[in-house]
Simulated assay, not measured.
Amino acid sequence: MELALVIVLVIIALGFDYTNGFHDAANAIATSVSTRALTPRVALAMAAVCNFVGALAGTEVAETVGKGIIAAPAGTHGLVIVIAALIGAITWNLITWYFGLPSSSTHALIGGLIGAGLASSSVVMWSGILDKVVIPMVLSPAIGFFGAFALMIAILWAFRRRNPGRTTRGFRMAQSLSAAAVALGHGLQDAQKTMGVIFLALLTTGHVDQNDGIPLWVKLSAATAISLGTYSGGWRIMRTLGRRIIHLDPARGFASEAVTATVLYVMAIGLHAPVSTTHTITSAVMGSGATKRLSAVRWGVAQNIVTAWVLTIPAAGVIAALCYWLVHLIFE
Rank of each mutant, 00 (worst) to 15 (best):
I114E: 05
D209L: 10
P73F: 11
A43K: 02
L203H: 11
L118W: 04
N211Q: 12
G270S: 10
G112H: 08
A222C: 15
T280L: 00
T307W: 12
T230C: 13
T19D: 01
D17R: 02
A290G: 10
Y98S: 11
G112C: 08
G78I: 06
R162Y: 11
A150Q: 03
P40H: 04
I143M: 11
S103Y: 03
F331P: 04
V82K: 04
M125N: 13
A268T: 14
G213P: 07
L220N: 05
S105E: 02
I129F: 08
I246N: 04
G234T: 09
S122H: 08
S288T: 13
I198T: 07
I281M: 00
N27R: 10
S104E: 01
V134G: 00
G300S: 14
A201E: 07
I198Q: 08
I226D: 03
N211F: 12
A284F: 10
V8D: 01
N20R: 13
K219I: 04
F159M: 12
R252V: 07
I155Y: 14
W126A: 03
T167A: 14
G289I: 01
L113S: 06
V53T: 07
T168I: 05
A119C: 00
S221D: 03
K67L: 13
L130D: 03
I70G: 12
H186W: 10
V285G: 03
L271V: 07
V301I: 15
T230P: 10
G187P: 11
A268G: 13
I246V: 15
L216T: 15
V134F: 09
S227L: 06
A316Q: 08
V124D: 04
R244M: 14
T260V: 07
M1A: 13
V259F: 00
V208I: 14
I269P: 01
L322G: 14
R252I: 08
Y324V: 09
L241P: 03
N93E: 06
A315M: 11
A181Y: 01
G300M: 08
N20E: 13
S140F: 01
I114Q: 06
W97F: 06
L241M: 15
V208P: 12
A89R: 00
C323Y: 04
G187R: 03
I135C: 00
G287P: 12
L326P: 00
V208A: 07
G229V: 05
I95M: 11
L177Q: 00
T205P: 11
R244E: 15
I87W: 07
L113E: 03
S283P: 08
T91F: 13
L156S: 12
P40E: 11
I95F: 14
I269G: 01
I90E: 05
G147P: 07
Y98K: 14
W97I: 01
L109V: 01
A150P: 01
A71H: 10
L130A: 15
V266D: 02
G242Y: 10
W157F: 15
L311I: 14
A180C: 14
V318Y: 01
I129L: 07
R239D: 05
T31I: 13
A48T: 09
V297E: 02
G229M: 02
L139F: 15
